[in-house]
Design a protein around this nucleic acid. Structure first.
Lengths: 213, 213
DNA sequence: ACCTGAACACCGTTCAAGT
DNA sequence: ACCTGAACACCGTTCAAGT
C-alpha cells in the first residue's frame, strides 16, 4: 500500500478500527486461513510489529474481524415469526461460513473479550426465539447446541472440500472397486454439487420440526 | 532422538509406516495443531526434507495419521443392535475428537487417496446401520450428515474452549452487566463443565429418537 | 505514544549434492 | 534410492531504538 518509508516514530494514523478493517479486507481476499498479521501490515503500509500497538495478538484480531462479519448478519431485518427467525439466522450464519472459509472454526468456543459482541447478540437472538416458540430453556439450549454444531460442521467440511490440488470425488471413488465395497458412502459422496444448500436446509428443518410454526 | 550426524546418503531406515507412526506420536503429544514435519523429523532423528521420500506432503501425512487413529476405533467389537451400534460409533468418534484436538477438522471433507481407508469404513458402518433400522437411504444420508456435523462441531468448539491464555467463562461473563443483557446465552455458557459428555449424548439421542431401538 | 528494524523461533517445500 | 545441507518464502512475537 505504501512504499516510501516513513521516519521512525512518524505516525501512520493507525487505530484499532483501521487495523480490524484492514484485517477484514485481507480475510475477504485470502480467507481466514490466509489472514496473517504480516499481510494486514502490508495492506496498511506498515510494519508487522506496529500492529501490536492496537491489537493484543493475532487471536484478538481474528476474533474482532469475525465479530464485524457477524455484526453484518444482524443488520437487515428479521422475520417476526420465531421459527422463521431461527431459520433465517441459521441460514445467514451458514452463508457467512461459506463466504468466509475458516471463520466459524476460529470463533466457535471463543468468548469475546468485550461485552456487546455480535456473537453474543446472535446467540441470544436464537435462544430467545427458541423460547418464544414455547420450548423450555433446557430444550432451547439443546437445539441451539445442535444448530451451531450443524453450521460449524458443514462449514469446516466445505472448506476442506474446496481445497485445491485434490482430485475430484468421482476420480477418487473410482479406486474403490466401483462402489462395491462402500456403496452407501459412495452414493452419499456423489450427491449433486448443488445439494449443498438444500442439504443444509433439510438438516435445519429436521432439527426444528417439532417447533410450532 | 539422534544427535550424532549420519553421513550423506546413509540410510536411516525410514519407511512410510515409520514416518506415519512417528507422526502419531507427535500428534499425541502436541495435538494436530502442533503436528509439523519438522517435529516428526526430529522424532526420527532425521532431516525434515527426507520425509518427502516417504510422504507427498504434510496434508498426506496428517490424513494418514488421522486414518490410523480412526482405524483404532473400529477394532473393538460393536453392538449388534443397529441403533446401539450407531450411538457407539458416534460416541467413539466424539471421544477421539476430544483426545486428539484438531484431528476431525483436518479430515472432514477430505476423501482419502487409498481405498480401504478407515474413514470410508466408518461412514459405511454408520450408513448401513441406519438403513438396518429401517430408514430409507435418503433419510440415512440426512441423519449421517447431521451426526458428523455434530461430532465435528462439538470437537472444534472444545479445542477453542481449551485454548490457554483465555479467561474463564465466569470471569468473562462478569463484564456483561450481570447477565441482564444476554441472560439465556449467559446461562447456556455457564453450564457445568461435566455436562460436556451428557450434552453431546443428548444431542445424538435427539437426532436418533425416531429410530426403532 | 507510536512506529521501525532487527532479531528469534518457528513453519512447508525444493533441490543440488553426496553416498 | 535415500538422505543432508542450504536455501526460499513464509509465519507470530518481542524489544531496543528512534521521534
Amino acid at each position: 500500500m505504501r512504499n516510501t518509508p516513513r521516519g521512525r516514530g512518524t505516525s501512520a494514523g493507525l487505530s484499532r478500527e483501521s487495523v480490524i478493517a484492514a484485517g477484514g479486507r485481507v480475510a475477504e481476499r485470502e480467507g481466514f486461513a490466509g489472514l496473517s498479521l504480516r499481510l494486514v501490515a502490508y495492506e496498511l503500509g506498515v510494519t508487522p510489529a506496529s500492529l501490536y500497538n492496537h491489537v493484543a495478538n493475532k487471536e484478538e484480531l481474528v476474533d474482532a474481524v469475525a465479530d464485524s462479519f457477524i455484526r453484518e448478519l444482524l443488520e437487515s431485518p428479521l422475520p417476526t415469526a420465531p421459527k422463521e427467525r431461527i431459520r433465517e439466522l441459521v441460514m445467514r450464519l451458514h452463508r457467512a461460513g461459506l463466504t468466509h472459509p475458516g471463520m466459524l472454526s476460529n470463533i466457535i468456543g471463543h468468548i469475546p473479550e468485550q461485552p456487546g459482541s455480535a456473537q453474543m447478540i446472535y446467540s441470544e437472538l436464537i435462544l430467545s426465539a427458541l423460547v418464544e416458540t414455547g420450548a423450555s430453556e433446557q430444550q432451547a439450549h439443546l437445539l441451539y447446541g445442535i444448530l451451531v454444531s450443524l453450521v460449524v460442521g458443514t462449514s469446516v467440511a466445505a472448506v476442506n472440500l474446496r481445497a485445491p490440488s485434490r482430485r475430484s470425488v468421482d476420480d477418487r471413488l473410482g479406486d474403490y472397486i466401483a462402489d462395491s465395497c462402500i456403496p452407501l458412502t459412495s452414493r452419499y459422496l456423489k450427491r449433486p454439487e448443488g445439494s449443498q444448500w438444500s442439504d443444509f436446509r433439510a438438516r435445519v428443518d429436521f432439527v426444528l420440526r417439532d417447533l410450532t410454526e
